[in-house]
């Protein structure tokens, strides 16, 4: 019997959650270099460094001499809180665990890099290819997403073929496409990817968000309601546009 009924006297419940997380993708394993660059960033945007949880991605720099402990200490001294390590081999995994950090498997054959966190990189815009390949791990959901349901694509795009009703929530690391009326909440770019969007056939959304920038139904121009639209981020500003 696996009937899930609410009991008042439980100490806790486990719940799946999708939280925005900053990934610090290391391209150098040299602690001095990391330290120097971090110091520069702190002076540029101190607001970002408020015990922000980060995942250290060591995919590019993994090796026997990876000074994970040292790197973590540097992060902490700049008010970044390493919570997990991503990628690397067995030794990276073991040292992450020894340091009390979580370990995530590498994102295999990544075809594009995450766009940098916007307020950490205000001055230099990275050259963005005209077209970034859609990350795999996307998800296609067929049917109505109902009030109280949450459908997510933690690693790619989410496509819903059907309606998303009021009180429902859909999330994706990549873009969100709804082939039907969107009445609930849609959050794209939940890991900070800014080069993603929300697309739907009929806009009635309670909330639209791209990479943490959001608009509530109240903020949406009523002219757009009921229309086919796209939502995208430009200069930290959320744009909603009829298609």
């Amino acid at each position: 019997m696996s009937l899930n009924v609410d009991r008042e006297n439980t100490a806790f419940t486990f719940k799946g959650g999708m939280l925005p997380m900053t990934v610090m993708e290391l391209s150098s394993a040299d602690p001095e270099e990391v330290e120097a660059q971090l110091s520069g960033k702190v002076s540029q945007s101190p607001a970002f460094f408020q015990h922000t949880p980060v995942v250290l991605s060591v995919e590019k720099v993994d090796g026997p001499n990876l000074a994970l402990e040292r790197l973590c200490a540097i992060c902490r001294s700049h008010k970044l809180l390493p919570v997990a390590v991503r990628g690397g081999g067995e030794s990276a995994k073991q040292s992450a665990w020894a340091l009390g950090l979580g370990w995530f498997p590498p994102v295999e054959a990544r075809t594009h890099t995450l766009a940098p966190v916007p307020d950490a990189e205000p001055a230099v815009a990275e050259p963005v290819a005209a077209e970034t390949l859609v990350a795999h791990g996307g998800r296609v959901y067929r049917g109505t997403v109902r009030s109280g349901q949450q459908i997510s694509a933690p690693e790619g795009d989410l496509v819903v073929v059907g309606a998303v009703n009021a009180g429902a929530e859909i999330l994706a690391a990549g873009s969100i496409h709804v082939y039907g009326p969107l009445r609930g909440r849609a959050l794209a770019g939940i890991h900070g990817d800014t080069d993603v969007g929300v697309f739907c056939h009929e806009l009635h959304a309670e909330l639209l968000s791209v990479s943490g920038n959001y608009k509530r139904l109240e903020d949406i121009d009523p002219v757009l309601l009921g229309k086919a639209i796209q939502v995208y981020l430009e200069k930290d500003h959320l744009h909603i546009e009829a298609l």
Binding site: N4, R146, S147, G148, Q149, N165, G167, A168
Partner: peptide, 19 residues
Amino acid sequence: VRDSDRILGLLGSKTRLAE
């Protein structure tokens, strides 16, 4: 209508047939 929508979600997940 919204509450019915919620119930329909539960019917699709928290029933023996769904499980």
